[in-house]
């Protein structure tokens, strides 16, 4: 029972996927994926549009069941324990992050409440956030009046407010200015150092270099997986950007 031995290691292995396949009718969105992600790791999940990244993320977030294969997130089975998974993860994306017509405090209270944090903890984490970002002036502003870069930094902090085992970031820096984009990665690094695993997708290939490991998906399969340095040496390229052009295909896009 290899699988149960692996789950005993759930303390250090946060995502564990073996032969995971997802079909929609005849279309194979995820084709026999096998990989694992360790505690505190920054894992870059790369691939062309239509390669199957979103499907895999939806499965790992407990929103969709695979057709076959195994997948565990934070030690929980994606087939049977999706509610437990939802409590153990954080999620943010470029498209959905915060509620525009609530202010920052209200957003924090709302998400804190959803994740079951008590009043005292919410208050304490709120104060930490305000201090960290120097946002005293901004806390009563509606989110829609806050510049995108700030909004995404706040959204990320709220996505890890409940100290999840892993946070999923789906193109978190799309449309963000280059300086704020780099500040966002400072936040990612801090979070990973706290032991929270970061699972991130991006179309900025320079950001792929900041990950501990990256995978590249193509046509539903993982075609490359490893440390950026090792992958570049293997393919004799100078950057992940070059590697991406070499191996990624966009047939379904």
């Amino acid at each position: 029972m290899e699988r149960f031995q692996d789950i005993d290691k759930a303390d250090s292995t946060v995502i564990w996927v073996k032969n995971m396949t997802k079909k929609f009718g005849k279309f194979v969105a995820n084709d026999n994926l096998t990989f694992s992600v360790e505690k505190g790791e920054i894992f870059g999940f790369l691939g062309a549009n239509g390669a199957g990244k979103t499907t895999a993320i939806r499965i790992l977030c407990g929103l969709l069941s695979p057709t076959s294969g195994e997948a565990y997130v934070a030690g929980y089975d994606v087939y049977k324990q999706s509610e437990k998974i939802k409590q153990s993860i954080g999620y943010m994306s470029q498209k959905f992050s915060l509620y525009d017509d609530l202010n920052m405090m209200e957003n924090i209270r709302f998400f804190g409440g959803i994740y079951g944090l008590d009043k005292k903890t919410i208050e304490q984490r709120t104060n930490e956030l305000i201090e960290k970002f120097g946002m005293q002036d901004m806390q009563k502003k509606l989110i829609k009046d806050i510049p995108l870069g700030w909004k995404q930094k706040i959204a990320f902090s709220i996505a890890v407010l409940h100290k999840p085992k892993v946070v999923f970031l789906d193109e978190p820096t799309g449309g963000v200015d280059p300086i704020t984009r780099r500040q966002f990665w400072d936040l990612i690094n801090e979070t990973a150092e706290m032991g929270i695993t970061v699972f991130v997708t991006t179309h900025y290939m320079d950001e792929a270099e900041y990950c501990n490991r990256v995978s590249i998906m193509s046509e539903g399969k993982i075609i490359e997986l490893g440390k950026p340095k090792d992958l570049k040496e293997k393919h004799q390229v100078n950057s992940i950007d070059e590697l991406f052009f070499k191996v990624a295909r966009n047939v379904n896009y």
């Binding site: 691939g47 062309a48 549009n49 799309g174 179309h203 991406f244 052009f245 990624a248 966009n250 896009y253």
Partner: peptide
């Protein structure tokens, strides 16, 4: 090209 992968952007 916003939200479009690096290969498709080039195309």
């Amino acid at each position: 090209t916003t939200g479009v992968d690096a290969v498709s952007r080039k195309e």
